[in-house]
Design a protein around this nucleic acid. Structure first.
Lengths: 193, 193
DNA sequence: GTTGTTTTTGAGCACTCGCTCAAGTTAAAA
DNA sequence: TTTTAACTTGAGCGAGTGCTCAAAAACAAC
């Protein structure tokens, strides 16, 4: 190999991802991207093919990071429910301004079938996350942390609906007090489900 | 008055609203709008001032319609909780393709403070809806339909979070069976809250 | 050095964007 | 019928869009 790329691919994806997350796909211009990742159009298009391509990478990276974060909280907690709880709290507390709403949910809201590639990618990633959650609730039941009158998938759905609604709500009214109240409510609902 | 406008203002707002609802604000082009409302740019800009102006009208109209629908279901039901239940069911069943997610929630997700007018409008309308819901749960408590260990505002928040999350979830996996299950879950959660 | 291959650069293309405004059309009033 | 004021039309403006590609720069191998 004669020459190597100068930029750090992962850093570029992350920076672009935050911009896409804040502004959405269609409201983000390629010039916005050029300045935030400090690359000229030619390099971007050589590396990612298109705006859509870069967005895809960013969304996949986001989903991966979210899973990793959840895994970290699970492995450093005494119980699965505690792990989930601290994960939700962490996500809500650490969210940068304009990034309160899950990027996957924002993507799910933004794309219709006029953008099939991004629509399908979003669906796939959300489906994967649901499977991951289902597995988690399955083991929680097997460890007797959770009642078994509902299937793991139903718990996963409740979790997703609450998580989605909660983050959407906190995007509007940012307040740590309300946030903590609502997270506690969420886990009371899950335990009593 | 020498001459009158030829178009039906309300119909135009409604048609434009559906397009905005499906595609979002920034992904909707003025040319899309022109064809769906069958008006030439000059007339649109004379009547609404800007794309933002037309969107504002459409969003206000949407919020108004949602309130009206809820009021209708409340007044034709035996109890408040039944009214809320049939309202949620109706919204989920009657939603046109691409319109599963509440337009207000989509707007809340789309706008940041680089579009202060639309951001503030969205916040105001969501706040108004929350107040409306709070009043409803207040009377539900006074009519002994609901426990009083939580304030009406807390019930309103739970309702919003569930409603938001539920519609987001149904946008992804459209299935009447799952929808009914999740609505029943939602109202079980509210009753047992 | 010089060569050969890869990456980076940025001017700029073809197109679409939100929007304007002069000209044309309409219809109540005179 | 003519006047007059309001409404509608659509060509098209300037700015911004996603993206391309020839030229310049970078660097390992010789």
């Amino acid at each position: 190999m004669v020459n190597k790329v100068k930029f750090d691919r992962e850093k570029v994806i992350k920076k672009a991802g935050i911009l896409f997350w804040q502004k959405g796909f269609s409201a983000t211009s390629t010039r916005d991207l050029q300045t935030t990742v400090d690359m000229r159009p030619g390099s971007i298009y050589a590396a990612f093919g298109s705006k859509e391509g870069l967005y895809s990478e960013a969304l996949k990276n986001y989903a991966e990071q979210l899973k990793t974060l959840l895994a970290t909280h699970l492995s450093s907690s005494a119980s699965i429910l505690e792990g989930l709880h601290s994960f939700v709290q962490a996500v809500l507390e650490d969210s940068e301004p304009g990034c309160e709403i899950c990027m996957l949910i924002k993507a799910n809201a933004e794309f219709d079938y006029s953008q099939p590639l991004l629509k399908n990618l979003t669906n796939d990633l959300l489906q994967q996350f649901e499977c991951y959650l289902t597995d988690i609730f399955d083991t929680a039941q097997k460890q007797n942390e959770l009642a078994t009158n509902h299937a793991p998938l139903e718990y996963a759905r409740l979790f997703q609906i609450q998580f989605t609604g909660l983050r959407s709500y906190m995007h509007r009214s940012q307040s740590n007090t309300i946030s903590n109240e609502l997270v506690n409510m969420m886990f009371k609902l899950i335990k009593d489900f």
